[in-house]
């Protein structure tokens, strides 16, 4: 009643929260798993892999910036539909999205990941890490693929993924938040709902702590993405200024 999270939140409240977050995730997930099912398992022909590898670095960066930006727009819509998010100040909404939207894109990537072929759905087909060679960030790409693989291995349901995404987005320890306490309450409630759903699904007790460990991996991926972007921008400032999506620059440009 006073907005406090668990233990006061009842099972019915947690079920309701899980339902709402799950529905928001479903409505904003960009691709339904079923849509991709027919192409899953298909390997990209070598000629197409070569085509990506031969692209000039600037063009490949631009393509990836566009794809990331598209995915982030869906994450913004997801955030808007999370209970309580739009009641936060606009400053805090922006702080949470700036820090967390790419993290959610990385989480969502595991839905579009083909574990057998180590490939992710990109530009209309399943692509392995070699497709991204022209970016000149092999280490970061390898880490992103490793992250997707490790998250896939937990075999989370869509509802669990939705709640984990909301939990990450509502991180109360982001710098520059005005109302940390309110974000903390929302995050705590989301964590309780996630815990509740994991229990309901008879998941191992360790899954929640596994997921908490993944949070630091996500942060590391995002800060490495920012470093790579800075390095790229230092060499190609005009490409970024003129050809990168404005939203991408707003989020990562500084």
């Amino acid at each position: 009643s006073n907005g406090e999270a668990s233990p006061t939140a009842s099972m019915a409240e947690l079920d309701h929260l899980a339902h709402v977050v799950s529905k928001s995730h479903h409505e904003t997930c960009q691709y339904l798993k079923e849509e991709l099912q027919p192409t899953r398992g298909e390997r990209l022909p070598q000629a197409e892999v070569d085509g990506y590898q031969r692209k000039p670095r600037e063009l490949m960066w631009q393509l990836c910036a566009v794809k990331i930006t598209e995915a982030i727009q869906y994450v913004v819509e997801f955030a808007k539909r999370i209970d309580g998010f739009m009641e936060l100040s606009q400053n805090d909404q922006i702080v949470l999205l700036k820090a967390g939207s790419l993290e959610v894109v990385f989480i969502r990537m595991c839905r579009l990941f083909d574990e057998q072929n180590n490939a992710v759905y990109f530009d209309g087909k399943f692509a392995g890490p070699d497709v991204f060679k022209a970016l000149g960030c092999d280490d970061l790409i390898a880490s992103v693929f490793d992250f997707a693989k490790s998250l896939c291995s937990l075999q989370l349901t869509e509802e669990e993924l939705a709640l984990f995404s909301a939990f990450v987005l509502l991180s109360a320890d982001r710098s520059w938040l005005q109302d940390k306490l309110q974000v903390e309450k929302l995050q705590q409630k989301t964590q309780s709902a996630l815990q509740h759903v994991l229990q309901k699904n008879q998941r191992d007790d360790g899954v929640l702590s596994e997921l908490r460990c993944r949070v630091s991996a996500l942060r590391s991926l995002c800060s490495r993405h920012t470093e790579k972007l800075s390095a790229f921008r230092a060499v190609h400032p005009d490409i970024v200024r003129m050809h990168f999506p404005p939203l991408y620059k707003e989020l990562f440009g500084a």
């Binding site: 409505e27 904003t28 598209e70 727009q73 869906y74 913004v76 819509e77 808007k80 739009m86 606009q90 909404q93 922006i94 999205l97 700036k98 404005p246 939203l247 707003e250 989020l251």
Partner: peptide
């Protein structure tokens, strides 16, 4: 707000440019 113009707009719009 000026610095985050697009994000601001996306948050304000009830329907965003994304075709959901």
């Amino acid at each position: 707000k000026e610095k985050h113009k697009i994000l601001h707009q996306l948050l304000q719009n009830s329907a965003s440019p994304v075709d959901l």
